[in-house]
Design a protein around this nucleic acid. Sequence first.
RNA 1: UCCGCGAUAGCUCAAUGGUAGAGCAUGCGGCUGUUAACCGCAGGGUUGUAGGUUCGAGUCCUACUCGCGGAGCCA
Length: 431
Amino acid sequence: MKRVYIENLGEHVGEVAELRGWLYHKRSSGKVRFLVMRDGTGLLQGVMVKGGVSDEVFERFDALTQESSFSMTGKVKKDDRAPGGFELEVSDVNVIAIAEEYPITPKEHGIEFLADRRHLWLRSSRQHAIMRVRHRIIKAIRDFFDGRGFTLMDSPILTPAACEGTSTLFETDYFDLGKAYLTQSGQLYAEAGAMALGKVYCFGPTFRAEKSKTRRHLTEFWMVEPEVAFNDLNDDMELAEDFLEYVVQNVLKDCEKELKVLERNTALLQNVKAPLPRISYDEAVEMLRKKGINFEWGNDLGGTDETVISEQFDRPVMVHRYPAQVKAFYMKRDPQNANLALAVDVLAPEGYGEIIGGSQREDDLQALLDRIKEHNLPQEAFEWYLDLRRFGSVPHAGFGLGVERTVSWICGLEHIRETIPFPRMIYRNTP
RNA sequence: UCCGCGAUAGCUCAAUGGUAGAGCAUGCGGCUGUUAACCGCAGGGUUGUAGGUUCGAGUCCUACUCGCGGAGCCA
């Protein structure tokens, strides 16, 4: 007996196969009974006709409840009436475990109810599709950098001090050394990596203790951060647009089925190809004012500002050269205008906001010392970082991409909480 | 932290201040091609918590708890 997965059924038409999975739902019209199985790779409808199987097997149908685990054996047929396009002419059914009354029915549920049962919610087709897209995005991210000679060099999660000195961090006791903090970015460590290995990226979870309560925020999220020695801001933007093209086009190619489940209109995603439009912060401000928004030069772009700007384009847009005062201390100033930082944010279309933030880094020791002083940061905590400028400093640049916001955008979701298996938010850390 | 909205059956929601309802789910019965199947019957309620107004409160008032959305901050 051949045990097969539903996604491979096309290779087994006409054969007798065994499938193992869970009952998605069942229907009966008396002597014809339908069992819809899910096995993690797809859905398959099994059909039993009274008289076509033994009475004993026929009656096992009665015991099966939603999400009971079971196996079924039968001949694989192509049938357009069945979900998935294939059907199993069932000859045997074996119960593995009968499920208790399953709380998540095919009808609609409220978000709190589902979030409390996230461990079960993941079994539903929509969540299944999102997790598959998330996986494909992460694979594309790694393939892209690996294929360009980058080395994955992870940064620590427990850190002695704030990386950027701004956000609120999660704090924990660290033996006799006092406090440690959960990282908000691996970037500073990635810079050390770039000086050692040339092209590196780090990819791990990051943590923000800010009490952000919006559809775009998690307290724990994943970020990939490439860092490249000898790159300037322009190189950084070219890397970012090639990267986004690679990720989006690979997901479109390999996740057609999942995006269909999600009812994602992929027209705009098809447009994600380098080069992406680039505008300066100054141009962005002008754009906002033309739209009647009273925006003061020098402020950071808010959520609604980002949406208004991104609506002017049919693909992600790169906004570069922000006022230095709203950006982090390590960003290099524009030699043409010392009020500007050589920073770039990539704004996703359709109101999904900032998915990438990057910059050319300050490579001058004295300038960096001044910045640390201006931002009231403890210099001793950054001595190792300053060493990178003392020992063969070079221009370098990098960026960070928020994985969950990218998943949210590509899947076309309403809320970021569905993009990660077990979301951590300000009022939820379970299950 | 601030602003707004909400909480009624297992779930999703109804119910002019006047007897607590429906669909789904569950149980039982029926049906030889169903697609969130369909048809019939049945069980299922301290209306988030604590007070108050009233002859009478799911409904009006106050406080609290929890949730949702947004702002700020950010990926």
